[in-house]
């Protein structure tokens, strides 16, 4: 039972090595709270009015504002713009995977893993620290590509070979491209990313 499991799992895993998707719990909690408060207050007031009490001032005021303000009123336009932007942002949250900080590793058996992009940067920097002839080094780890800027008398081909070896060791499911760029002076390393 146990010994058969890893083979079976690894056979179906490769397509499971897809990007992580954030659960969006924070945004969901905010939106649900806002809708709950608004709809709850409205429901309470509607039932109170049906039960013979007068409508609350806030509801009468909102109804009055909506009925008197025209569409070209500045407040209405600003409100509509904010609503459209907020709506677009929520749609983006719904569609975008999120968790951009983590890169998925090749799964092994029933264990899937993701590595911190900064961690890959640390590994590359430590590997480069063992090389001679590097004055300045700047490593930027993107989600598809690693950009390394080196200055100093080191041989760029050998630096590239070493870093590529290190990058291959990490075992990211979607291999990263490695760009090594050499600059003449130390100026390239000074720029703040």
């Amino acid at each position: 039972m146990v010994s058969g499991e890893p083979q079976e799992a690894s056979a179906e895993r490769p397509e499971k090595a897809r990007r992580l998707r954030a659960s969006r719990a924070g945004a969901a909690a905010l939106v649900s709270t806002a809708v709950l408060v608004g709809a709850g207050a409205l429901l309470y007031d509607v039932i109170a009015v049906r039960a013979g009490q007068p409508a609350r001032r806030w509801r009468a005021q909102i109804a009055d504002e909506l009925a008197t303000r025209h569409l070209d009123d500045l407040g209405v336009l600003v409100g509509a713009g904010v609503a459209a932007l907020l709506g677009g942002w929520l749609l983006w949250l719904a569609v975008a995977p999120g968790l951009r900080r983590w890169l998925v590793l090749r799964p092994y058996g029933g264990t899937s893993a993701a590595v911190d992009r900064a961690g890959i940067g640390h590994l590359l920097a430590d590997r480069a620290a063992g090389l001679t002839g590097i004055d300045h080094l700047r490593i930027r780890v993107g989600r598809r590509r690693v950009r390394v800027t080196v200055s100093g008398p080191a041989d760029p081909a050998s630096v590239q070979r070493q870093l590529r070896e290190e990058l291959a060791r990490v075992g990211v499911a979607r291999p990263l491209r490695l760009d090594v760029r050499t600059v003449a002076g130390p100026t390239g390393g000074e720029a703040e990313g």
């Binding site: 969006r24 649900s32 609503a83 709506g87 929520l90 749609l91 949250l93 569609v95």
Partner: peptide, 16 residues
């Protein structure tokens, strides 16, 4: 979460 956020976003965006 993603489906409901998408619905809320679409309603807001559409109205706006």
């Amino acid at each position: 979460n993603r489906v409901l956020l998408g619905v809320a976003g679409a309603v807001l965006l559409g109205a706006g």
